[in-house]
Amino acid sequence: MSAPATPLLRPPRNRVDPRARRWWTVQALLTVSGPALLTALALAVCSVLFFPGALPWLGPLLLVALVLPALGYLLVMPRWRYAVHAWELGGRAVYAANGWFWQKRRIAPLSRVQTVDTVRGPLQQRFGLATVTVTTASTAGDVKIAGLSDADAEELSRRIGEAAQAVPGDAA
């Protein structure tokens, strides 16, 4: 390093596709929020039908334990994620930021790249999105860029492939 002052890691330059927010919302609905809300609803209905006396304490409990967290996750997570997720392909390394509550910024040099995978899940296909995973020999060094548009993903994986070829590799 050459800088006299303490250098700081800037965020990656490029954001992921804005449609990723919708993808994450649907994902949240299917995996966490939806089931939680359904459970709360089912419990509430059961309570109304069979144990009306339980409602005064069950209602607030469900609200606090299931409904609010589910809604919070549904509303907050996709936006937060979108604010965090970013990527950049540099001359010698690929750089990605992801996560929301727990955030990760990972930089892997192109000389270590082993494979570039582009994955489109069923949900992602609906939104025209893709995930590019750059693998290295170490599982702790795999760079994952989720929520790119199809075209970007294709272009990116092609360019990482080319760049990895161009940079003398020591992908051991």
Binding site: M1, A3, A5, T6, P7, L8, L9, R10, P12, E88, G90, G91, R92, A93, Y95, I107, A108, P109
Partner: peptide, 15 residues
Amino acid sequence: APGILEEFLDHGGHS
């Protein structure tokens, strides 16, 4: 480990 993240550093820092 030089040669990995230099290009993503912001050198304007004063702390």
